[in-house]
Amino acid sequence: MKRRRLVGIIMIVLIALLSLLLASAGTAAGSERLLSPSLEHPAGTDTMGRDLAGRIAYGVLVSFSIALPVSVISILLGITLSFAFSVSGFPTIPFLMLSDTMKSLPPVLLALFLNALSGPGMLKLIVALTVGNVPNIARLCHSRMMVLRSDGPSLAALSMGVGRIKVFMTHMLPFLLPYLGTEAVSIFSASILTEASLSYLGCGVPPMIPSLGSILAEARPVMLSAPWMIAFPAVILALIGIALEMIISGSSETDTASH
């Protein structure tokens, strides 16, 4: 199944590279409105005459540049939490109860609320998406650390006076990383979709920055007369989603196999 994961990774890298090459916000040009795909405009033009291929590429980069920090911060958070759980004095139960309350604030709701306070913004988006993942990360780390509680080598090392942090890094972290890694990819995938939905509503990325969601929002009125405006972003989103799914499903088989 490792092959599946590899294919997924390759797809994502290819999409990212292609987007880096083609990304361009485009200039509004009234005379070029809604042109169907051609050699000059491989994905056609949008309702304001801007080249769609360039905007889609830009949108992909924007999505990735939101999803990546969210995933990375989530992993870091996971590592920190796992370490905290390994410390015996840590108030685990109250902490878990607190983090569970955050389950009632899904990222979309939190993002909409933050928008109501002060409008759209990239930072706000990242915060809202990260906070939404905290309960899941916490639970995941907690359940994994429960397994590790009775891990022989770790207990032995501790009793021999090896530092807590060192024990964590050498014995526990390697066990945790695959789980955190897979979770991070899930978070990445979910963030892409959530950002697209929020931008579609006008509450994600600021209006001047192209985003797959806002392109689709502009496409809605001309859904039937200019189908390319929906088709291309949709295909790209689907490819990204499928690639990420392949990475996840390709990983979990190996995980369960090794345990």
Binding site: T27, A28, G30, M48, R50, G202, M208
Partner: peptide, 21 residues
């Protein structure tokens, strides 16, 4: 859309523009 198109015109001539909707 007019605001965005205006911002786009300005930006293409090197003038920084920002839109609030």
């Amino acid at each position: 859309k007019i605001a965005i198109a205006l911002a786009s015109s300005l930006e293409s001539e090197g003038i920084d523009a920002d839109v609030t909707v």
